[in-house]
Structure formats: structure tokens, C-alpha cells
Amino acid sequence: MLTDTIESKAEIDRSKAAVMIMKLFDLWGLQTEESTALLGLAKDNRTALAKYRKGDPISNSRDSLERLSHLFAIHKNLRLLYPQKEVCYAWMKKRNLVFDGLTPVEVIDRFGFRGLLMVRSYLDRARGH
């Protein structure tokens, strides 16, 4: 009985996370291919994105949950570093000399999970963490 409650709670959390990440991707102005790259999905996986928009839960895999954690941390760092919403939400698609002229989205697309960590680490350091 307790297990059912815990599993249901996890399902609700992953559903909320799916909707939240899709909203964040909208705020960042990401295209389908960019969104799927950040989530580690196949580039043409529009089906998964449509399901997440509806509130279907994000996969319970370690990779998916860690990606979400890093993406939400990137968002938090950006909100703290750039209180102006326009600057905050545009940052992920702006070219950056730190990333050899690539945008943070391009870094994540090119380097995968390692790229996600590169972007997060850069922002953590910028905040002094």
C-alpha cells in the first residue's frame, strides 16, 4: 500500500516536471530538434515532446532525471545571474566566447551529457559556486 503511494507521487512529480521543462523550452525559444537534444532524445522525436506537453511523465531513467535536474539548475542560475527576463531566456541561444562561439544549446547538442555539464558548470562558477 505504501509502495503504491510512493510510486503515484513519483509519477505526479515526473508529470509536473515534463510540463515544466516544456514551458522552459518555450521560454528559451527552442525548436523541436533543440528540445530533443537537451533531453537526450532522437532529434525527430516530436511524439515524446507532445506527450510531455500534455503532462505524460518523463522517463524514470537515471539519464532523463539527471538531465532534468541539470536543466532546472541551469534555469535557476540564469534567473539569478540575469534578473531581466529577456536576457535570461535568450541566453541559451546566444553565441558565447567561452564555448568557442557556440550557443549553450549547440554545446549540449554537440557534446551530449558532457555538454550539459559544461554549461551548468560555467553558470555555477559565474554564480561563485
Rank of each mutant, 00 (worst) to 15 (best):
A10S: 11
F72D: 09
N45H: 03
R120T: 02
L97G: 15
G101D: 09
P57H: 01
Q31Y: 01
K43Q: 15
R14V: 03
F111V: 05
L116K: 04
K23A: 13
F111S: 02
L49E: 05
F113G: 00
K85T: 15
R46N: 13
K93P: 10
D13F: 12
Y89D: 14
M20S: 15
D124C: 04
K54T: 01
K93Q: 15
I12C: 13
L71F: 00
I74T: 05
E11N: 14
K85I: 15
T3Q: 11
P83E: 03
A18F: 02
D4I: 08
I12H: 08
L2C: 05
N60Q: 15
E33S: 09
G40Q: 05
M118G: 00
S15W: 08
Y52H: 09
V105R: 00
R127L: 06
L81D: 03
L97F: 08
K93E: 09
E7T: 03
I12N: 05
I74A: 03
L81T: 04
E66G: 01
C88E: 14
A10Q: 14
R67G: 00
L68T: 04
R127P: 01
Q84K: 15
L123D: 06
V87R: 15
L71H: 06
L68K: 01
M118C: 02
A90D: 05
D26W: 09
E33P: 08
S69E: 13
H129E: 11
G29S: 09
R125N: 10
V87M: 10
D63P: 09
R53A: 11
T32W: 10
S69R: 07
V19K: 12
T103Q: 04
I12E: 11
G29F: 02
S35V: 13
E106S: 05
W91V: 02
